[in-house]
Design a binder for these strands. Structure first.
Lengths: 196, 196
DNA sequence: ATAAATATTTTGACCAGTCAGTATAATTTT
DNA sequence: AAAATTATACTGACTGGTCAAAATATTTAT
């Protein structure tokens, strides 16, 4: 039963996610992961090489999920401007989800330097983000609504703006600024792209 | 000898900074701080309430120092465009310094949620950053080189862009992209400000 | 089909190591 | 000598990982 083992792993990753959301990344112990998954202490180490291995898989799951949601939101609409709006809208999905997901993402980022595995996962995530940016910019140029010299630069800067905005919103801890950051980010990106 | 105690504290903060740079924030122990300061284990606890207290002071020192350097760089020049360039130039001071300082700053950011004291220190830092942004934007408008509707929004977005760029550069781990991110960030901000 | 044998998964006690903080002793300063 | 400062030994709590035994599932033999 290979599927069974995979399901267990998923269960443990989910448990680690919930534990991290509740207690904060750095305070999660193997015991916590086991408790949240309602299994005994030995199980995480049976399915994963180590605690760090559990978190690496969680990081992968997290970034994959964020990316897929963003991509899916964009696929719902047609024009470049609509796609940008859908993208931003999905990124700034809600204060609750953003707090949970982005705080954990930030915890991972802080450890990228120490964990080569994390760096690779994040590089993949960035690549996905850049591909989203590129497709919006290229389409926008084709539609004649954007005007940029360097598509790659614009694609990268879109994500820069998004991460900077989310980070700042999260750090300021003011729930109510969520809409403001979403709109400011959106507006800033449009100005950067020379939107008509 | 009040000055003596203050000097000792400074020595311990510096030691914590060096230890964190070498071993990574989360791996620094009280023993490390003592070792780097070349004192014995009991000393940090004599001058600070706890290890967390040492780090809180380090965080304050770090953000204060970053801000003062930025402000000083700007004061060297006259026009808004020059000030923006000086600001960006100081932010992207060098790959080595950026890696050290910004990695540690990131470690702190990841813990802002858990530590109310950190949140306050960072709020103060942001306030300083925004004041820099405001002064550049206001002067630029007065000089007729920038054109923005909302000064406060522009000021905040400048820092958003900077933090996003530094974060991404740091995460990608490609030393050589440093100049590229500096220039892209600069260019992006100028476009955002509607620079002539 | 049933029982025995084998393989897989789960349990939880345990170990070895770490570390923050404390207590007390020694030393230096005033 | 008294007070302030520093050194050192110690404690108590905690954690990641191990492992032998138990439970459960799967396969094989009768």
């Amino acid at each position: 039963m290979a599927g069974k083992a995979e399901a267990r792993k998923q269960q443990l990753i989910k448990a680690a996610f919930e534990a991290a959301t509740d207690k904060g990344y750095e305070h999660v112990t193997l015991q916590d992961i086991a408790d949240y998954a309602e299994v005994s202490k030995g199980v995480p180490n049976y399915y994963f090489k180590s605690k760090g291995d559990v978190f690496a898989h969680l990081f992968e799951w997290l970034t994959q999920r964020i990316f897929e949601n963003e991509r899916a939101a964009m696929d719902e609409v047609e024009t470049a401007e609509e796609k940008l709006q859908a993208y931003i809208g999905q990124v700034f999905i809600s204060p609750e989800e953003n707090r949970t997901f982005y705080q954990l993402y930030l915890d991972f980022l802080a450890r990228v330097k120490q964990e080569p595995a994390y760096q690779k996962i994040n590089a993949q995530f960035y690549e996905h983000c850049f591909s989203i940016g590129r497709s919006i910019v290229e389409q926008g140029i084709a539609e004649g609504v954007y005007e940029v010299e360097d598509v790659e630069q614009a694609a990268v800067m879109i994500r820069t703006m998004i991460d900077g905005s989310l980070l700042q919103w999260l750090m300021r801890g003011e729930e109510s600024l969520h809409d403001w950051y979403r709109d400011s980010c959106h507006e800033g990106i449009r100005r950067m792209l020379g939107a008509k």
